[in-house]
Write a protein that binds this DNA or RNA. Structure first.
Lengths: 154, 154
DNA sequence: TATTGTTATACTCTATAACTATA
DNA sequence: TATAGTTATAGAGTATAACAATA
């Protein structure tokens, strides 16, 4: 049995605009725009986000890095493995808790993440090309604020 | 060789805030918040987005649905298969081009998507709990605008 | 007992390639 | 020749379970 559609489109697009589809489309486009700017960085955007947190965050162990990125700790093992192999980070023992590995940037890792940052911001801006400069700032701020609050519930 | 970190954190969080990580975190949390509201709807948010477009969009063929959602056309075959099996949509032949399948909502599909919509908006609001009502509206508008412009480049 | 990290394995989502049928 | 849809297969990303080392 098929609906005849007579009560579709009550004055335009119908229903509310779909935030979920918009977010998913943005993330997809983000990968496509930003990945090329990252060259052969292992794991693309994920690797970049990890380097950032290793260099500038307060989460040096693998478990806390994983929590920060919202992935399982087993994922972080592979991620760090490949960043080590690329010479961008190193694992150090933590004398205060020998279960942990403290992950630190190598000198090359630091100059790499610094250089990548401006390229990423450029790529992000081209991704948001439909928005005005002011709107881009708003979107950045709102996304960071909303996502930051989610981190606290973990 | 390890960087000593002396030039880290030049006045706070260091670097620009990471839009990519924020977006990814939002999408992840979106799945977690919205999926329960969708009950046993096949393919969760993807299924919901498909039902919306089938019922209220201008993209009735599988290829155009796939393009709208940003996935390959092979994915749409599985998606529609399962929505048909759930009794929510049906495939119709298109007399004007017999290669195509016109996808339409069943009566149950239409009442289902209408009922789900309000629940989804509720779940989205709880996802954005850290934002004020005004900010939620802004974020919705900006995401839709930015994502909508991306669709045109396909 | 609980936590950190590792490894092996499996699952989900998506894409690629090859095919049929239509245009 | 090109497009719509299907099917089989493969890949990327992620999670679960089991384990060793340490707390």
């Amino acid at each position: 049995m098929i609906d005849d559609g007579t009560h579709a489109d009550p004055g335009g697009p119908g229903l509310e605009p779909d935030l979920g589809r918009g977010l998913l489309a943005l993330v997809r486009a983000y990968q496509e725009h930003v990945s090329p700017a990252l060259g052969d960085l292992p794991h693309g955007p994920r690797g970049y986000q990890t380097l950032r947190e290793v260099g500038y965050g307060a989460h040096p162990t693998q478990v806390s890095l994983a929590r920060h990125l919202g992935v399982d700790r087993t994922v972080m093992t592979y991620l760090i493995d490949d960043l080590v192999e690329a010479g961008l980070v190193e694992r150090r023992a933590n004398p205060e808790d020998r279960r942990q590995r403290l992950v630190v940037l190598t000198a090359r890792g630091r100059s790499e993440v610094d250089a990548l940052c401006s390229r990423v911001v450029e790529a992000e801006d081209s991704l948001l090309g439909a928005l005005t400069t002011k709107e881009r700032g708003q979107l950045r701020r709102l996304v960071i604020k909303a996502a930051g609050a989610l981190d606290d519930n973990r």
